[in-house]
Simulated scan of single mutants.
Amino acid sequence: MQLVVARIGRAHGIKGEVTVEVRTDEPELRLAPGAVLATDPAAAGPLTIETGRVHSGRLLLRFEGVRDRNGAEALRNILLIAEVDPEELPEGEDEYYDHQLMDLDVVTVDGREVGRITEISHLPSQDLFVVERPDGSEVYVPFVEEIVTEIDLAEQRAVIDPPPGLIDDRAEIASSRDSSEASGDEA
């Protein structure tokens, strides 16, 4: 199975290095020197990682055959894809690969059906499940321990304990403006 592990960013310096946006929890395994990665678009690859280093908090890679800034810039926005055994599991106990979570049924702790996971969005602060409801609408569920209480791969379901308003429209919204209007106060 193929998984996107990074997106190539801008060139760094004049010797062919590029910044990369890491899209894997295991960059030391997937983006190590010697790794051969497929690309999207496919015509750009495959690419073999020659060197890698961290500079100012960003991962910099150099690929075999890319020796200058022009060559590095030509790779900008290309996705790097690793071949992964579908049975392989992440090292951490409560970690999952995106393909394991896709299409899981989402239910609340009291058993109400919410929908199924159609996408995982990786944001800087947290990951989000994009859940398609039975009516075709979507709801976004933060993939945090307080909300996603259980992932059961054997049963193909994710159990959530959503706060009010996350999956329904029954949240009460209170604002100071509403209370001042109710008491007749005007500014």
Score class of each variant (00 low, 15 high):
183 S>H: 14
184 G>Y: 13
11 A>I: 08
14 I>A: 08
122 H>N: 13
117 I>T: 11
81 I>R: 05
141 V>D: 00
42 A>C: 00
6 A>R: 00
83 E>C: 01
88 E>K: 15
180 S>T: 15
46 P>T: 02
112 R>S: 14
183 S>N: 06
43 A>L: 13
61 L>S: 01
132 E>V: 07
149 T>S: 05
35 A>P: 00
136 G>K: 08
80 L>H: 03
54 V>C: 00
30 R>I: 06
72 A>D: 14
34 G>A: 07
54 V>F: 08
125 S>Y: 03
51 T>R: 10
165 G>L: 10
60 L>Q: 05
158 A>D: 12
19 T>K: 06
61 L>Q: 01
164 P>M: 04
108 T>H: 05
129 F>V: 11
174 A>Y: 08
60 L>C: 03
115 G>E: 04
85 D>Y: 10
92 G>L: 10
5 V>K: 01
54 V>A: 01
152 D>W: 07
111 G>Q: 09
50 E>A: 12
53 R>V: 09
106 V>F: 14
8 I>H: 03
12 H>I: 09
92 G>R: 14
28 E>F: 07
120 I>K: 11
112 R>M: 08
106 V>S: 09
5 V>C: 08
140 Y>I: 07
20 V>W: 02
46 P>L: 03
79 L>G: 00
184 G>E: 10
151 I>L: 11
63 F>R: 00
79 L>N: 04
152 D>K: 13
72 A>I: 14
157 R>D: 09
51 T>L: 09
156 Q>H: 14
130 V>K: 12
159 V>D: 03
171 A>M: 08
48 T>E: 04
132 E>W: 00
185 D>P: 00
51 T>P: 12
43 A>P: 14
12 H>L: 03
184 G>N: 07
158 A>P: 15
175 S>K: 11
80 L>E: 06
131 V>D: 09
94 D>G: 01
154 A>N: 15
22 V>I: 15
57 G>D: 06
177 R>T: 09
7 R>W: 03
113 E>L: 14
47 L>N: 03
86 P>Y: 05
135 D>P: 04
99 H>T: 14
46 P>A: 02
137 S>H: 03
